[in-house]
C-alpha cells in the first residue's frame, strides 16, 4: 500500500508539473491536453466507485457523462440566447456560472443514476452490463432525435462559462479548476472507501449473502454507490462540455462508456488513482500515436489486449504490486 501511495503522489505531481511547464514554455495546447486527461480521469474515478468498490460493471456511464454535458449545454444555451429554461412552474433563466452548472449537472445525473440503478440492480452479471448499455443507447438515440437542443448536430456554446474570480478563458485557470476538483473528488473517494459505508460496500461486492446476514441491505449499498458514481461522472461531463464549448450526442455513445471503462482498467480497477493513470496514459497515447499513424487505434487495441491478457491489475498494479491479498 505504501508503494501505491508513492505512485499516486507521482501521478498527481506529474499531472500538475506538465501544464505548469507548458505554461512557462508557452505551449497552451499541452495545457488543454492535460485538462482533457484530468476530466477523463474524473469521469473514470466516478465509474471506479461503481466498478471497483461496488463490483458493478456498468457499460452505460456515458449517460451520466452526457447528462452533465447537456446540463451545461442547455443552461448556457438559454443564457446566450436570453431565453428561459422553463416557464412553468417558475421562470428559470439560463446561467453562465460554473458552480451553478456543476450543481445542476450533479443533481440531474444523480437522479438519473438513482432511476437507472434502481431498475438495473434488479439484474446481475451479464444482464446488468447489457441493461446499463441499453440505458446508454436510449439516452443516445433520444438526444439524436430530440430537435430542441440541436439533435444530432449538438450545441455550440460560444464563450466558456465563468467562475467567480478566475479568467476561465485562459487555459491555465481552467486547468486549475479541473485539477482541484479532481483532487477533492479523489480525497472524497479515499475517505469513502475507508468509511463504514465503503467497508460495507466492499463486503457487499465480495459476498452479498454475508452482508445480508449481518443485517445490511447489499442492493441498497450498491444503489447508493451507483448514485455517487453517476454524480462524479456527471460533474466530469459538465467540465468536458466546458472544455470543448460543445456538446453532442457522442457524449452519450456506447464508445464513450467503453472508453471510460478502458481508463479504469488500463490504470487498475479499485485503485484510488488507477483511473487517473489510465486516463493520462490514454490521452498521451492518443496524442503521440495519433501523430505517428492515422491508424493509431490498432496499436491502442493491441496494447489493451496485452494488458488484459498479461498484466491483470493495470498499470498501477504493475508499478505498485498486488495491493490486497483478498482481492
Amino acid at each position: 500500500m505504501i508503494r501505491e501511495a508513492y505512485v499516486n503522489m507521482a501521478v498527481l505531481a506529474l499531472l500538475l508539473i506538465v501544464p505548469v511547464w507548458a505554461q512557462m514554455t508557452g505551449e497552451p495546447f499541452t495545457i488543454t491536453l492535460a485538462t482533457r486527461a484530468v476530466i477523463f480521469a474524473l469521469a473514470a474515478v466516478g465509474l471506479n466507485v461503481a466498478l471497483g468498490l461496488g463490483g458493478m460493471v456498468s457499460l452505460g456511464h456515458a449517460v451520466f457523462f452526457g447528462i452533465g454535458g447537456y446540463a451545461m449545454g442547455i443552461l448556457a444555451f438559454h443564457a446566450q440566447t436570453f431565453t428561459p429554461v422553463m416557464t412553468w412552474p417558475a421562470d428559470v433563466p439560463g446561467t453562465k456560472s460554473m458552480p451553478i452548472i456543476w450543481l445542476v449537472a450533479m443533481l440531474t445525473s444523480g437522479l438519473a443514476a438513482l432511476a437507472i440503478g434502481a431498475l438495473s440492480l434488479r439484474t446481475a452479471g451479464v444482464y446488468f452490463i447489457m441493461i446499463t448499455l441499453a440505458f446508454g443507447q436510449m439516452a443516445y438515440f433520444f438526444t439524436i432525435s430530440w430537435p430542441t437542443y440541436g439533435g444530432e448536430d449538438g450545441l455550440s456554446i460560444y464563450v466558456r462559462n465563468g467562475f467567480p474570480g478566475l479568467n476561465t478563458l485562459a487555459p491555465m485557470p481552467f486547468f486549475a479548476i479541473c485539477f482541484t476538483l479532481l483532487c477533492l473528488v479523489l480525497l472524497f473517494v479515499a475517505l469513502l472507501a475507508r468509511s463504514p459505508f465503503g467497508l460495507a460496500l466492499n463486503a457487499a461486492r465480495q459476498s452479498p449473502a454475508r452482508v445480508q446476514t449481518v443485517g445490511l441491505d447489499p442492493q441498497r449499498l450498491k444503489l447508493v454507490a451507483f448514485v455517487i458514481s453517476g454524480v462524479i461522472t456527471g460533474l466530469a461531463g459538465a467540465l468536458f462540455a466546458d472544455l470543448n464549448r460543445f456538446v453532442s450526442p457522442t457524449m452519450f455513445s456506447w464508445q464513450m462508456s467503453g472508453e471510460i471503462m478502458v481508463f479504469v482498467i488500463l490504470g487498475g480497477v479499485a485503485r484510488l488513482c488507477g483511473p487517473v493513470v489510465g486516463a493520462v496514459v490514454f490521452v498521451a497515447l492518443e496524442h503521440i500515436l495519433g501523430d505517428l499513424s492515422d491508424y493509431w487505434h490498432i496499436w491502442l487495441g493491441a496494447l489493451l489486449l496485452v494488458i488484459v491478457l498479461f498484466a491483470r491489475g493495470g498499470i498501477v498494479g504493475l508499478l505498485a504490486g498486488r495491493a490486497r491479498a483478498h482481492d
Binding site: V57, Y295, W296, L300, V308
Partner: peptide, 16 residues
C-alpha cells in the same frame, strides 16, 4: 470485465 475490455480492443483492431 476482462472479456468486455479484450473484445473492445479487438473491435479497435478490426475496425482500424
Amino acid at each position: 470485465l476482462d472479456q468486455v475490455l479484450a473484445t473492445f480492443a479487438l473491435i479497435l483492431i478490426f475496425s482500424e
